[in-house]
Amino acid sequence: MSRLPLWLAQHLAAVRVVAVLTVIVGLLYPLAMTGVSQVVGNRADGQPLYRDGKLVGSALIGQSFTDSNGNAIPKYFQSRPSAAGNGYDPTASGASNLGPENDVDTLADPADPKSGKQSLLTQICARSKAVGDLEGVDGSRPFCTSDGVGAVLGVYRADGLTGNVTRVVSLDQGCPATPFMQSYDGVAVECGKPGEDYSAALIVPIRGDAPRDPVVPADAVTASGSGLDPQISPAYADLRAPRIARERHLPLDRVHALIESHTTGRTLGFLGQPGVNVLELNLALDRES
C-alpha cells in the first residue's frame, strides 16, 4: 500500500483541522452560548419589549422619547445622551471620541448656523443648563457659563507665554454675546468672532462659582461609551421624578416607587453602578396612568 505524498498528507490534515474547528467554533459554541443566554436572563433575542402587543424597543438599547419635532415628551423619562449615529443607532455604536481637553468651540458664521462645532465642554454645559431649566433646578457646572457654553478664555501675553496680558477673548461666546467675565487681569474680555484665528492665545478655563458636586448628574450630560446604554442613574431618575409626577398626575411617592422597582444593582454585587432601565420604567408609567 503506497503512502500519500508528504505535501498532500499535510494539506489533508489542515483541511480536517479547519472542518473540526468550524463545527466546534462556528456551530456548537454559538448554539451553546445562545442556549445559556436564553436560560440565564433571556437575552439571546435582544430582550424585546412590547406594549399592547406592539414591539416598542429592547431592554438592552436606549432610545429617545421625543415628538415629531425632536422635542422631549414631558411625561417620559429620557435616556442619557448618545453619540451613536443620530442617537442610539445600533449600527453606529460608539462614543464621540472627544477628550477632556476639547474645550474650544468652532464658532458658527451668523449667516450659516450649521457651520459651527461645539466642543465637548460646551455640549456638557448646554445639556446641564437644559436639564436644569426643564426640571427647575440649578444646572450650573464648573467651567461653564450661565448661558450654557464653555467658560474658556483665550489670553494673549506680551511675550507669548509670559508678560503682561494684552488681550482676552471668551472663545466659546460668539459675538454679540456678552462675555461671562468683564475683565481678566485688568484687561476687558471680548466676545469671540467667527472665523478669527485664536491659535496664538493661551487657553485658560475658568472654574466659576458652580458647586463642586453639580445638581445635574454626570450621566445626564455625557454619552456612554457605546451610545446605546439603556439605563440612567437613580440620581438622574429622582431628579426628573417631580416633573413626571406632575405631567402624569401621579403621587410623587408612586413615581419614586416605580423608579426603585426598575433599578438594578451592581453586577455580582461590586461591578458597575446601579441603573434604572428607562424604557421599562416608561412602560410601567404608561400602565400606571
Rank of each mutant, 00 (worst) to 15 (best):
S115H: 14
T178D: 12
G62V: 14
E288M: 07
G163K: 11
H11P: 10
Y76W: 10
L55A: 04
P234V: 04
P176D: 00
L134H: 01
Q47F: 04
A108C: 09
P230L: 03
S289K: 15
A9L: 12
T264P: 04
D67R: 06
C191W: 11
G227L: 05
P110K: 12
L12W: 13
L171C: 14
E288W: 05
K129A: 06
G62A: 09
V255S: 07
W7N: 10
G174R: 08
R240A: 11
L153Y: 08
A9E: 08
T145Y: 15
L107V: 13
A158R: 11
K117Y: 13
G62H: 06
G99H: 13
S146C: 08
R212M: 13
N42D: 02
A59D: 06
P251D: 06
G94D: 11
Y156A: 06
A126F: 08
N282P: 03
P100S: 12
V169I: 13
V215N: 00
D147I: 07
G136K: 10
S68H: 03
A237M: 04
E280R: 15
P100T: 15
A72F: 03
A177S: 07
Y50P: 08
A220D: 11
G99W: 14
V18H: 06
T66C: 07
Q10H: 10
A108Y: 14
A237S: 06
R127Q: 07
V215L: 03
A14W: 10
Q123P: 09
Q78H: 00
S68E: 02
